[in-house]
């Protein structure tokens, strides 16, 4: 019997969880659910607990990547075979969970990524960031020889090998992005995109707001260059054998 985990990283999402958790449960009936409360200052942990969710509360705010990685460690340490990561602000339509999981469980991929550009798109972003994202997606597609349209998507399903790879290393603290996909590719993991629907967040402040899009583009460019350099100098990430 294969065990599945739904990971919901949450930072100040007390207002959204009462809608997101039941919706996710309805869409993923045979999944255990864990909320990673990333040092929230509101009642996120209490709300999640009152909805009977397992809650891992981080004493300080680590950032999105750090919270998701905590979920990966939880999944590895509790022996799950598959984990799906989903935003807890309502942006990810849980209807996508089934297709993501199926793509991994059928052995087509080690990591399945929900792409808003393949699926239905209901979403706004600053143009600089949009252009940057397309450029990075194109770069990753060229290098991996696989079409990538949405490298920033946090709606993902991972098998145990990929979970192990990310649980203790190789995962950025801030935001997994195009560079993370390249690391996966170089380590020999198969990454496949599937179409999903993303919506505007229900309430609260998005983690991308206030972000300088220019800063994002330059940082991402540096991160991608570094992954390529590491690969060339043979200090790139390697799989953990288990």
């Amino acid at each position: 019997m294969s065990r599945h985990l739904l990971i919901l990283p949450a930072h100040n999402e007390a207002n959204n969880l009462p809608r997101v958790i039941p919706e996710a449960r309805a869409a993923a009936t045979d999944y255990d659910l864990v909320v990673i409360d990333d040092g929230s200052r509101d009642a996120t942990a209490a709300v999640a607990a009152s909805l009977n969710a397992d809650v891992v509360s981080l004493p300080v705010n680590l950032g999105y990547g750090g919270a998701v990685q905590t979920g990966f460690r939880y999944a590895v340490e509790h022996g799950y075979d598959l984990a799906v990561v989903m935003d807890s602000d309502g942006q990810h339509d849980p209807a996508g969970i089934a297709l993501l999981a199926e793509t991994v469980l059928s052995g087509q991929a080690d990591v399945a990524i929900g792409s808003r550009f393949r699926g239905r798109m209901a979403y706004h972003q600053p143009w600089v960031k949009r252009v940057g994202m397309h450029l990075f997606a194109w770069t990753v597609s060229r290098i991996t020889q696989r079409e990538v349209t949405d490298p920033t998507s946090g709606f993902q399903a991972l098998n145990r090998a990929a979970l192990l790879f990310f649980a203790y290393d190789n995962y950025p603290v801030d935001y997994p992005d195009a560079d993370t996909l390249l690391v996966l590719h170089f380590a020999g993991f198969r990454v496949v995109e599937v179409p999903v629907t993303m919506r505007e967040r229900l309430s609260g402040v998005s983690m991308h707001s206030g972000w300088k899009p220019f800063y994002y583009v330059v940082k991402m460019w540096l991160a991608i260059s570094m992954v390529l350099l590491r690969e060339r100098t043979h200090v790139s990430a390697r799989r953990i054998s288990s």
Partner: peptide, 17 residues
């Protein structure tokens, strides 16, 4: 130190759970 702090924070959260 940030790297170490991240690991400690994660461990602490998981242990509390």
């Amino acid at each position: 130190d940030e790297d170490r702090l991240k690991i400690l924070t994660q461990e602490l959260g998981l242990l509390r759970h």
